[in-house]
Nucleic acid binder design. Structure first.
Length: 817
DNA sequence: AGCACGCCGACT
DNA sequence: GTCGGCGTGCTC
């Protein structure tokens, strides 16, 4: 019989897969998508994944055998295998990198794999060699031993052989119980049995409890809480503590079927315990939108749901989620960050309870494994998660919702492998034959264009729900204020007046300033010295509240210099206004008002966010000053004014997406104003009120904004009119990375036309964390030719890799960056 | 990735 | 004389 070989993915950032021979005894059970135990580099043991099987004998090396199979059934469904393959191909990354990123650690145990004795076995010690004897004896004492520990008494090169032979002899096995040891953290909640309440009169119930006054008291307390806040789950521990009730009293109530106990996962509730209003029926506009979505899905098209803030996108999501689940399929709901769980969680929780799952990178490893297991068992109908959740082993996915699809958290550059979750989810959906809704109040230019070209179905909700008016925009010419001296610091007198009006009416104001810290630069007036980070090519930002200098790129901190380190002058000056300074200015202008700041630095302390949230909700805060953080998830009814004192700073960023981002940020933050009253107002203070983005925002002419952005992109050849690939090279030595990038440039120019290649040049941040970085930007044509061009890029990169001297250079490739 | 091998400087 | 620095090479 011809031998069978498996192409195995290893959890290492290495190109391609590795060939292992499938031993005969595993032939019947092995399948693509299963985890297998293999040895690599002689002694190391890894959990690999079978990616492919074939009968082609390798010619250049002798493959090793697979030691064992770790799963009874494939852990990865074929859709995920296809998805990984696509990701690796499209984003030019290694499969191993995807594997490392997408699997929780304990599912890809390396030398941490645990072994144990098989129960009830008779060991024939006579026929064991020394190593096998040692291992058996150790296991008799310890029960569970991992591979690293075995190294203490068996030489590395014999470990694999020893384990393999003992497994073959059926004396030991690999322990897979680790995942099951974990129980998800759950919190108990209580509710009154509604059914009982409807069937039996309340006095009757109370009468039945008259001999147990404590139970009666508890019942009434629960009833009161439930009637007052029907949407707010009642925490068991809190209620018992509140009235000093005993567990036995509750137990009797549960036994009498008056009260029901239920469990919810912990993490999701700590973040959101507010109330939600009962969902009203879909409005006519929403119904129309829903019909359009249904039509698109029927045609097999994905949807871009463009809905202004508070237009009820969530409402539509919920409708489609309910339909999908009713249809027996599962739903993946993607969010840019897990903290933005909003109302949707509560509503889903009410309907689906334990069939709702959460997945994000902040879960512990065991919590992740638990979600994996539940998904695999089809115990989860709806999964809410961040981009990591795309990799869960769904069996029957019917709908993917990508909320806030424009959000840049969907493609963080710092985390490898690089991919855009918005685009990837559409590909994943294709493999599952599922539908996708991309939703946003400010869709990305790329998605808008795709909708224009009918690659996506465009569904527009132009009105706020319940006919609440969209906020009014006003532009304030700061140059004029400066010329006429009508200003205090960064605020024109007009802007101050407007804020004061809000204060007088007991309304709240939000002030957006998207720059962290107090001042951007500390500069010496005498010699011009500025404080650079020693690790990076960036000036350090001054943070006044803890009086230190911080590098926002590598996190390095330093004391604020008292004198100039270069010329010892005491004449140090700060330049560039940060949010701390805006906060200070506002506090001085309105000394009697409560002014709070919200940015990553002030929210670092535990529960800082929750505390401030409550404070704003309770109306204790008058003015909230913050960075872009305030544009997300803060839905308060009493905010009417949003002010952006230094709006120009949003535009002057060196990035072809700067205008798009500015438009999105301003629109998102403006959505916080006048949600209830419809009297929202947005004040944009700028030196340049004629700027088209500001003008178009003022006129609420969203289609024109996209038209404008698209015209610019077309003129300067940026996406969606070309495909971008950015290649970044990094090394500790600048001369080396400079030479390497020149060399890579010359190879690329051999294959690609000159107009496709920009650079190489030093990256905008020339040094980061002591690594010098150079970049090449490729602008490739869209469409059929793209694949050919990309092949040429791959070829160039391979040629570059042949130069052994450049192997130590770190290479990052960002496709569609 | 990560680990061994190998070739040059500061130490018991 | 050796310990250990990190540049280089390789893994089925």
């Amino acid at each position: 019989m011809t031998p069978t070989f498996a192409q195995v993915i290893l959890p290492l950032n290495l190109k391609g897969t590795f060939t292992y021979k499938v031993p005969e005894e595993l032939l019947n059970s092995i399948q693509v998508g299963m985890r297998v135990l293999v040895s690599f580099r002689g002694k190391k043991i890894y959990t690999g994944i079978v990616f492919e099987m074939h009968h082609q004998q390798p010619e250049t090396f002798v493959p090793k055998e697979i030691i064992n199979i770790l799963d009874d059934a494939p852990i990865l469904p074929k859709e995920q295998i296809e998805f990984w393959n696509w990701l690796s191909d499209y984003y030019m990354g290694n499969l191993g990198e995807i594997y490392r990123f997408s699997f929780p650690g304990s599912l890809k145990l390396e030398s941490e794999t645990y072994l144990k004795l098989k129960p009830n076995i008779l060991i024939d010690f006579e026929n064991l060699d020394v190593n096998e004897m040692y291992l058996i004896q150790a296991l008799e004492v310890r029960q569970l031993i991992n591979i690293t520990e075995i190294e203490a008494f068996i030489t590395k090169k014999d470990i694999v052989k020893t384990i393999k032979s003992l497994i073959d002899l059926q004396y030991i096995e690999i322990d897979e119980k680790i995942a099951e040891k974990y129980k998800a953290k759950e919190v108990a909640y209580l509710k009154i049995n509604e059914e009982k309440l409807q069937n039996t009169h309340l006095p009757e119930i109370l009468l039945s409890l008259k001999r147990s006054p404590k139970q009666q008291e508890l019942f009434l307390l629960l009833l009161e809480k439930q009637t007052e806040h029907p949407e707010k789950p009642i925490k068991k521990s809190e209620v018992l503590e509140e009235g000093n009730f005993a567990h036995a009293q509750l137990k009797s109530l549960v036994e009498k079927d008056l009260v029901q106990e239920f469990y919810l996962q912990k993490d999701r509730l700590e973040s959101y315990e507010g109330e939600t209003e009962e969902l009203e029926k879909l409005s006519d506009v929403q119904l129309q939108a829903k019909t359009e979505i249904d039509e698109a899905f029927e045609e097999g098209k994905n949807v871009l749901l463009h809905g202004v803030t508070s237009s009820g996108k969530t409402h539509l999501y919920l409708e489609k989620i309910d339909e999908t689940v009713a249809d027996g399929k599962n739903v993946l709901f993607l969010l840019p960050e897990i903290s933005l769980t909003k109302q949707i969680v509560q509503r889903l929780e009410k309907n689906y309870g334990k069939q709702l799952g959460f997945y994000h990178q902040k879960l512990t490893d065991f919590e992740k494994v638990e979600v994996w297991r539940r998904i695999k068992n089809n115990d989860i109908k709806i999964l809410i998660g961040t981009r990591n959740a795309l990799f869960l082993p769904y069996e029957n996915l019917g709908l993917i919702v990508v909320d806030e699809e424009h959000d840049s958290s969907y493609k963080p550059r710092e985390i490898s492998p690089f991919f855009n979750a918005k685009d990837a989810s559409q590909v994943l959906a294709k493999f599952y034959k599922a539908n996708v809704i991309l939703g946003s109040a400010t869709p990305s230019v790329e998605s808008y264009y795709a909708a224009n070209k009918e690659k996506l179905k465009y569904v527009y909700l132009a009105e706020r729900f319940g006919n609440v008016k969209i906020p009014e925009f006003e532009l304030i010419n700061f140059k004029e204020a400066q010329d006429t001296k009508k200003l205090v610091g960064s605020f024109s007198l007009h802007l101050i007046d407007e804020i004061r009006k809000e204060l007088d009416q007991k309304k709240q104001t939000m002030i957006l300033h998207n720059r962290r810290g107090y001042a951007n630069v500390v500069e010496c007036e005498t010699c011009g010295y500025v404080n650079y980070c020693s690790n990076c090519d960036v000036v350090m930002t001054y943070h006044k509240y803890n009086n230190e200098m911080k590098c926002h790129y590598c996190g390095q901190k330093a004391a604020k210099p008292k004198t100039c380190p270069q010329c010892q002058s005491e004449n140090l000056n700060v330049r560039g206004v940060g949010v701390e300074q805006i906060h200070e200015e506002v506090s001085k202008i309105f000394p009697d008002s409560e002014v709070d700041r919200m940015d990553v630095d002030s929210m670092r302390r535990k529960f800082a966010y929750e505390k401030l949230y409550e404070k704003i909700e309770d109306g204790e805060t008058d003015i909230i000053v913050g960075t872009q953080m305030i544009s997300k998830g803060l839905d308060f009814d009493n905010i009417e004014l949003v002010a952006i004192p230094k709006a120009d700073s949003l535009l002057y960023v060196q990035d072809f997406r700067a205008e798009e981002r500015a438009f999105q940020l301003i629109t998102q933050v403006s959505g916080r104003a006048g949600r209830m009253s419809g009297n929202g107002k947005v004040l944009i203070q700028t030196y340049n009120p004629q700027h088209s983005i500001f003008q178009l925002l003022k006129d609420h002419d969203t289609p024109k904004i996209y038209e404008h952005l698209l015209t610019e992109r077309k003129k300067f050849l940026y996406p969606p009119f070309v495909k971008l690939i950015m290649i970044e090279l990094k090394h500790r030595r600048e001369d080396k990375v400079n030479r390497a990038s020149q060399f890579l440039g010359s190879i690329l120019r051999k294959y690609l036309p000159e107009e496709c290649i920009l650079g190489p040049e030093k990256s905008p941040i020339g040094k980061l964390n002591l690594m010098y970085q150079y970049q090449l930007l490729l602008k490739l044509p869209r469409g059929k030719k793209y694949a050919d061009y990309k092949n040429l890029v791959s070829k160039s990169l391979e040629e570059f890799d042949e130069i052994t001297g450049y192997l130590s250079i770190k290479k990052m490739i960002f496709v569609d960056f």
